[in-house]
């Protein structure tokens, strides 16, 4: 039987843990709110760029020399996957969810005879994937996902790197994987193909809606040359923000659980502690009584 002192120490240490987890929960809650606001504020730009892309893509769809970021290389042999995770752990299954999906994706592509390369954004994803796919990782971006406030420039730098690699012919198709924030309890692993870009909804609306005749200055192709790399940055920025919100949401849920578990454990230990104490008192009394009787 553990001594009373041991039990007291145990209880105290669990209490300390509970303090930490509940503080982390509060901090994650505050950060979550900020991340959500940021994601909300970034949406108008993305939406308007999407609309603009739709108009432009409709204009050049039929041209033979459509930009390569839109048309692709005509092949899909080398697949690049950008795995976006958090820099830090202690957020439940947030990171492992993404990594698990990425791993399955990699195996699928390899079984289909494709060559796979990886870029990891976020320390956790890199650490977990490195064990199995060390030789596939061409780059890792650490320190962006964990920033207090993710800036558009961070996303743009990543996008620029992608375009450079694409221009050098290092890959044919680029996909990103990240967690879409649904609610505090639910983050959804999302794959999105960025290169070549699926032309957004150009078809659906031209049918019934009388299509306005858009003028382009300069011609649509030249605008697209500017817009497509920018759109890449916007997509990555959006994914980073979704991830940031998801990470804090997941951490909040995980820490809430941990706090509750610690509470339960403290109750159990306290009960056990009291029982043990009582048993020892009883034992001592019996010893005294039987000692007195023996006289």
């Amino acid at each position: 039987m553990p001594s009373l002192k041991d039990l007291r120490n145990r209880i105290n240490s669990v209490k300390q843990t509970r303090k930490i987890t509940s503080a982390m929960k509060l901090v994650a809650g505050a950060k979550l709110r900020r991340a959500q606001e940021q994601a909300e504020a970034a949406r108008p730009y993305a939406r308007r760029m999407y609309d603009m892309l739709g108009r432009l893509a409709a204009g050049v769809r039929d041209l033979p020399e459509a930009p390569r970021l839109l048309a692709g290389t005509g092949e899909d042999r080398v697949q690049l996957l950008v795995v976006m995770t958090a820099d830090r752990g202690l957020c439940g299954a947030f990171n492992s969810q993404i990594v698990r999906a990425a791993r399955r994706w990699i195996h699928e592509k390899r079984d289909a005879g494709k060559e796979v390369r990886l870029i990891c954004v976020g320390r956790k994803g890199r650490d977990m994937l490195r064990r199995e796919f060390e030789e596939l990782i061409v780059d890792a971006v650490i320190g962006v996902a964990g920033k207090r406030r993710i800036e558009y420039a961070d996303a743009e730098a990543i996008a620029r790197g992608l375009v450079e690699r694409f221009d050098k012919g290092e890959f044919d198709v680029c996909t990103i994987v990240f967690n879409t924030f649904r609610s505090v309890m639910r983050q959804e692993v999302t794959f999105r193909q960025l290169i070549p870009l699926e032309p957004p909804a150009a078809e659906g609306r031209t049918e019934d809606e009388p299509r306005a005749v858009w003028e382009f200055e300069p011609e649509a192709r030249l605008i697209l040359d500017e817009l497509l790399p920018r759109n890449l940055g916007v997509q990555i920025y959006g994914a980073l923000l979704e991830n940031a919100a998801g990470e804090q949401g997941a951490r909040m849920a995980a820490m809430d659980n941990a706090t509750r578990n610690a509470g339960e454990m403290i109750e159990k230990l306290t009960l056990f502690y009291n029982r043990t104490r009582q048993a020892m008192i009883t034992k001592e009394i019996i010893e005294i009584v039987s000692g007195a009787e023996a006289l």
Partner: peptide, 9 residues
């Protein structure tokens, strides 16, 4: 007139 940056309107 709308002026929109990636981070916000």
């Amino acid at each position: 007139f709308e002026l929109v940056a990636p981070e916000r309107v």
